[in-house]
Amino acid sequence: MAEPIYTDIFRCKKDSGTYQPNSPYKTNLMAELKKAQSGTGSGPIGNKADETVYVVTLCAGYLKPNDCTSCINKTIPLLLEKCPNQKGAAAWRVTCMVRYGTPVINNYDVWFLANEVSPIKAMDVALLEKSLSELVSMSLYEVKPGLRRYVYKDLGYGKNGTLHMVMQCTDDLLPNDCHKCLIHVSNEVKPCCNGAKAAAVFTPNCYIRYSLGDFREGGNRPSSITIN
């Protein structure tokens, strides 16, 4: 089992409010999403608090640039379709994320948590949990100094297997919030994914994924990304 079946996850932020079709918020949102599609970057846009929009995108650190762009471009119209007038929304789809809404303090706002879990269980659940605990500790150790927001690790598993794990934060998080977010999703692995051969936990700010197969197939395969 190389990878859990990818799940399209869409969340509309219910307490974010709504916007009208011809409103300044809609105009600003579409302008920022267009920037995201072209890869030119984004920042808060809007003259008033209720018109300000912030768009964040994230691609798995092992993804090739063209695949990243393709994933984001396909995700944006689907998110707008799922959340047609919500001021805040997020989508995790395959290997990328798109999120938009009004800015929050330090951009850290874990307003939803979701997961995808393989239905196939490990034969030795105790061994899997022990190995996952080791990988989590190793990965968090590298993130803690505040120098990295993406870490990939693997660990020998059983006689011939390998357990793979990736943790990653969005670029807009402060180092301490990145570390806090990754601790959060790491703590959710055991209760959500008990003994599964592969699983992932997602929030609007970070995620963790593990598998007994290498999910980076065809990617660039960096082991970490440094925070600039």
Rank of each mutant, 00 (worst) to 15 (best):
A49W: 06
C96Y: 02
G43H: 12
G43V: 10
L132H: 11
R93W: 02
Y108S: 13
V143F: 00
E116D: 12
I208Q: 10
K13F: 04
T95M: 07
P77R: 02
N205A: 08
T75E: 01
Y152A: 13
I183S: 12
N106C: 08
V55A: 05
G101M: 01
P222F: 06
Q20G: 08
V53L: 03
R93L: 03
P21G: 02
L212E: 04
N28H: 09
G218Q: 04
S23G: 00
S139F: 09
T52R: 04
L63F: 08
C181H: 02
L58T: 01
I227C: 13
P145C: 00
M1A: 15
N107I: 11
T57K: 07
I45Q: 14
E188K: 14
K144G: 08
G61S: 09
Y157V: 12
G88Q: 04
M138E: 15
N176V: 08
C206N: 01
K153A: 14
G39V: 09
H164W: 14
M167D: 10
G46R: 05
I183Q: 15
K82Q: 14
V55W: 02
Y141M: 09
I45H: 10
Y108P: 08
F10Y: 05
K26W: 01
K64V: 14
E81Y: 13
P77G: 09
L128C: 11
E217T: 13
T18G: 01
Q86Y: 09
M1P: 14
N47K: 14
L212C: 09
M138G: 09
S186P: 08
V55E: 01
T226Q: 12
C178E: 11
K34E: 15
D15V: 10
N66I: 05
D15G: 08
A89H: 00
L33M: 06
D67F: 11
P204F: 04
D171S: 12
F215R: 07
S137N: 11
D50P: 01
F202M: 03
D154M: 12
Q20E: 14
L155S: 12
D124T: 00
N228D: 14
C96L: 00
L63D: 08
G39L: 07
K190F: 15
M1G: 14
V56F: 08
T57H: 07
T57N: 04
L128D: 06
A122P: 06
N160P: 01
A2Y: 10
W111R: 00
A36K: 02
V151A: 06
A60D: 10
I72H: 07
A126H: 11
P191G: 01
A114M: 13
I208V: 15
H179L: 05
G219W: 01
N22L: 13
D172H: 00
R99H: 12
K34M: 12
M1V: 15
L182Y: 05
V166I: 15
I105D: 12
L212A: 07
K197R: 15
Q20N: 06
R99C: 05
S224G: 04
C192A: 11
P4V: 02
I76M: 03
N85G: 03
Y150H: 02
K190Q: 14
K14A: 10
L155V: 11
C192G: 11
L79D: 04
Y25Q: 03
